[in-house]
Design a binder for these strands. Structure first.
Length: 157
DNA sequence: GCCAACGTTGGC
DNA sequence: GCCAACGTTGGC
C-alpha cells in the first residue's frame, strides 16, 4: 500500500531541479526526532512524496518524488566537517536517519501555498496547519491526489 | 526583517 | 521532571 508524504527543502539549498539532475539523492540533514522517526520507521520504497520548496516566494510544491531507499543512518552526522555534524551520533549508535528519493515529475502547473490554502479540498492538510514546521510529514491520499490535480501531474502517477 | 510557533537545552 | 531561556523554522 503506497503511503504519501511531503518533504520540505529550501530551493537555494536543494531545489527539485537538482534532484532531477542528480537522478536520486539522500535526504540528509534532518535533525528533528519526529521527522527522523518517519524516515527511519515508516517510509517505504515506492512511497510518493510531494517535494515542497519552503522559504521562497511563494512557497510551493515543485514536483513529485518517490522513495527509492528506506531509512539508514545519516552519515553527515558523523562528519566533523559537515554542517550537519552531531557529536552525539556515531556509527555504532546513529541518532539521525535519512531515506533516498528519486524524481518522478515536476509540476506542470505551479502549486503555490496561497492556492493550496484557498482549496477547500485540502482542508486539514498538515502543511496548512498554523505554526506547523515539520520538514517530513505524512499526507492523506485524498490531499495528495488533489495536489497532483492542481499541478496537472495525475498522468504521472 | 519581523515574529509566532514550537523544539531543545540545561539549571535546579 | 519542570520550565525559562534560547534557537530554529518559515510564512508574511
Amino acid at each position: 500500500m503506497t503511503q504519501y508524504w511531503l518533504m520540505k527543502s529550501e530551493p537555494h539549498v536543494y531545489p527539485y531541479e537538482q534532484l532531477v539532475a542528480d537522478g536520486s539523492t539522500h535526504w540528509d540533514g534532518v535533525r528533528n526526532y519526529q521527522a527522523r522517526n518517519f524516515m527511519r520507521d515508516k517510509m517505504k520504497i515506492g512511497d510518493m512524496v510531494l517535494f515542497y520548496h519552503s522559504n521562497t516566494k511563494p512557497p510551493h510544491v515543485a514536483g513529485l518524488a518517490r522513495v527509492c531507499k528506506e531509512g539508514y543512518p545519516d552519515f553527515t552526522a558523523f562528519d566533523e566537517s559537515s554542517k550537519y555534524y552531531d557529536s552525539k551520533s556515531n556509527p555504532e549508535n546513529p541518532r539521525w536517519f535519512m531515506v533516498d528519493l528519486e524524481p518522478v515529475t515536476a509540476m506542470n502547473n505551479s502549486v503555490d501555498l496561497p492556492d493550496m490554502r484557498e482549496n477547500p479540498a485540502l482542508e486539514g492538510m498538515a502543511l496548512l496547519a498554523r505554526g506547523q514546521r515539520l520538514s517530513v510529514q505524512p499526507v492523506d491520499k485524498e490531499h495528495f491526489m488533489e495536489v497532483c490535480r492542481m499541478g496537472d501531474v495525475e498522468g504521472s502517477l
